[in-house]
């Protein structure tokens, strides 16, 4: 297992190189970095521009340019952002930390509630609670995050303050304007709404996967064997049913990380939450090549990582799968 993980990680290096090369080309065609630089710094001297081209690896030849960029990237010699000449690494780190916090909270809430609802529904297929969960999951999937985000903002901020005189949950940022330093309570209150928006999507998806997977498992022969042993229904369900039901859920869930990330990007933007999503959209808007490339590398890397994680947990759940 460990050997497998190490090998997979080693393999991810060439994959990363290849994918980032594609990203590099796409960004150069899509955002035209040199023009963007000139637009944002209209009075930049030709030497400055030449230097910008050099440190970012923006050689007219894509291959040569890419390797120039790669060397600078690996040696941590990262160029500064074109707007405001900010250091990229700290900005990226902050954005990542905020997103990880939001993404983790939403995933923990979403996956737990989603799995529980799926189990709850599957135990009485066709029953009232099954129909209720199915309908709710359908609605949850159908409502895009930008709609639910705005509904939440209206309800918890606008109407709530109209009815009760104060907003229950703030609708933007991580802290109120002017707050300096760490404050857990404030942070949590700011995270509630965006977490809910993202979690709803996750809940809806997981509830459906879990329901159908568990239904399959419940009708399988080994469940009847388990029941024929005279053990409690709860043990039959938890010891024999759940682990089997989770196997397909884990596989599908790994493929779904993309849509969760998509939901995060949109949600962060609506809530002005300073995470990876906001980072990307503003950097993309400015055509800020030095900010965009490391972001892309990080995203590609995390996709690879999640895939590996899914494969490992898959093998851990299912003894028939041998990783080699």
């Amino acid at each position: 297992m460990l050997k497998y993980v190490v090998r997979r990680l080693a393999w991810s290096i060439p994959t990363l190189c290849f994918v980032t090369f594609l990203v590099y080309v796409a960004l150069r065609i899509g955002t035209n970095p040199v023009e963007s630089y000139k637009r944002i710094n209209p009075r930049a001297s030709p030497e400055k521009i030449a230097q910008y081209i050099d440190v970012n690896g923006l050689d007219p030849n894509y291959v040569r340019g890419y390797f120039r960029w790669l060397v600078n990237f690996i040696t941590l010699d990262w160029p500064r952002s074109i707007k405001g000449s900010r250091e990229v690494a700290p900005a990226l780190k902050d954005a990542l930390a905020n997103t990880l916090r939001l993404g983790t909270a939403a995933s923990v809430v979403g996956i737990t509630v989603g799995l529980l609802l799926g189990i709850f529904a599957a135990l009485r297929p066709g029953g009232r609670r099954d129909v209720a969960v199915n309908t709710a999951a359908f609605v949850g999937i159908s409502i895009p995050p930008y709609v639910s985000a705005i509904l939440f903002q209206l309800f918890f901020a606008v109407y709530w303050s109209r009815w009760f005189g104060s907003t229950l949950f703030p609708t933007s940022g991580v802290y109120p304007p002017g707050q300096t330093g760490f404050n857990l309570g404030l942070m949590i209150r700011h995270m509630v709404l965006p977490t809910m928006v993202v979690a709803i999507q996750i809940i809806a998806v997981y509830a459906r996967y879990m329901r159908s997977s568990l239904l399959d498992v419940l009708s399988s022969e080994y469940m009847r064997t388990a029941r024929s042993k005279g053990i409690s229904e709860r043990r039959v369900l938890f010891k024999h049913g759940l682990r089997n039901a989770l196997i397909p859920v884990v596989t599908i869930a790994a493929l779904d990380v993309g849509s969760i990330v998509g939901g995060l990007i949109i949600t962060e933007n609506i809530f002005s939450y300073p995470g990876m999503g906001k980072y990307f959209l503003s950097a993309f808007g400015e055509g800020d090549f030095p900010l965009l490339m490391p972001w892309m590398v990080l995203i590609v890397f995390s996709v690879l990582l999640f895939n590996l994680l899914a494969d490992v947990s898959y093998a851990w759940l299912d003894p028939r799968i041998r990783l080699e």
């Binding site: 009847r224 064997t225 024929s228 024999h240 682990r243 196997i247």
Partner: peptide, 24 residues
Amino acid sequence: MRSVRGRLMSMIFQDPLSALNPVH
């Protein structure tokens, strides 16, 4: 019923391939 099942009376099913739990 549970205290009887598996103790006084037990059952073997047709398909041994699916009668055992694959993950245990």
